[in-house]
């Protein structure tokens, strides 16, 4: 039940894009087309899960025993960058189809703040390993949900008669704000 609560809190109630406003650059950058947003979502789910697992282990087995908690920013950035490189090498050799499907998004994710944020939050919330995994899967699915929904809306908007001064990013920001309001409606569900 607790894991269920963590999962839905990460997915909907504290949606990383629409409620926490983290990783907004990719939210606006790659939501022009549904295809690209799905590619980005897949890459985020993949990288976020693995990197939060490794950074959790690093923090609890290396940094915490040595009382070096203040080093976590540097360590996590190092970890994520190296991990993405490793994953890229592995995918290129073993699953070239998936590698090509993710394309440019995999290296792009190295600098995505959502990945770092999840690694931090999992530690700030004092999650154990199981909880941290459920949390990061929830967050990455929440990211996918928000960006794919947004891409659907933006594809519709490309054909809609929008006033000249709202075309492009202004209307995208207004839409994002309205989606954010809609997601606020989840607050208080499951007693969270």
């Amino acid at each position: 039940m607790e894991l269920f609560g963590i999962f839905f809190s990460a997915l909907l109630i504290n949606n990383i894009l629409l409620i926490r406003f983290i990783a907004l650059c990719s939210f606006f950058g790659v939501s022009n087309k549904i295809d690209t947003s799905i590619g980005m979502s897949l890459a985020v789910i993949f990288v976020m899960t693995i990197s939060s697992a490794v950074s959790w282990a690093l923090f609890h087995f290396i940094l915490a025993p040595l009382h070096l908690e203040f080093l976590r920013t540097a360590t996590f950035i190092l970890t994520i960058a190296a991990l993405v490189q490793l994953e890229e090498l592995y995918l290129k050799k073993m699953i070239p189809a998936l590698y090509r499907a993710m394309g440019i998004y995999l290296p792009l994710i190295t600098t995505n703040c959502a990945i770092l944020a999840v690694a931090f939050l999992a530690i700030d919330y004092r999650f154990n390993f199981q909880q941290a995994m459920v949390y990061s899967i929830g967050v990455s699915l929440g990211y996918s949900l928000a960006i794919v929904l947004f891409a659907f809306i933006r594809e519709r908007m490309a054909l809609a008669p929008i006033p000249k001064w709202f075309e492009g990013y202004p209307i995208a920001f207004i839409t994002a704000a309205l989606m954010s309001l809609a997601f606020l409606g989840f607050t208080g569900m499951f007693g969270l």
Binding site: L58, L63, L66, L68, T79
Partner: peptide
Amino acid sequence: ISILVLGLI
């Protein structure tokens, strides 16, 4: 220690 740990990682 921090230099060592970070360097090692």
